[in-house]
């Protein structure tokens, strides 16, 4: 069940993180680790592409919250892209669209970041 994978693609001072599968309490630490690595490398322009993310639980959403302040303080941001309807619904329910920049396509997010 916990089929989850994180991949990343670096662009200069930013990176795109691709999430696959189920992001829940058991797999969240792996996503967290990926974000920690990016911060260590001073890459603060982060795009999370959720094209193949099937499910996100509240623990998965918590990961975003855990880092957003630090990243924004450093002049960066986390932008979300390519959310499936189901995943978007979860974000929307909790009011995330008011807090995060959610883009339809990864390209739009990169444009905003100038990556």
């Amino acid at each position: 069940m916990s089929n989850f994978e994180v991949q990343r693609h670096d662009f200069r001072e930013g990176a795109v993180v691709y999430l696959h599968g189920f992001l829940d309490a058991h797999t969240a630490p792996r996503f967290e680790e990926a974000l920690v690595n990016l911060i260590h490398e001073n890459r603060y322009k982060i795009i999370v592409n959720m094209r193949s993310l099937d499910y996100i639980s509240s623990a998965g959403l918590g990961v975003f919250m855990g880092f957003i302040e630090e990243i924004r303080d450093k002049g960066g941001d986390i932008k979300l892209s390519n959310l499936s309807t189901k995943v978007y619904k979860v974000f929307d329910l909790l009011g995330f669209p008011a807090l995060y920049d959610i883009c339809e396509e990864e390209g739009q997010a990169r444009e905003k970041f100038n990556l």
Binding site: L94, G95, F96, A98, L99
Partner: peptide
Amino acid sequence: LQPPGIAVGLNQGEIFDQI
């Protein structure tokens, strides 16, 4: 019925209250 609102603990206040 789903009126706008964000979860408690996500925002200090200004956006939360506004939405």
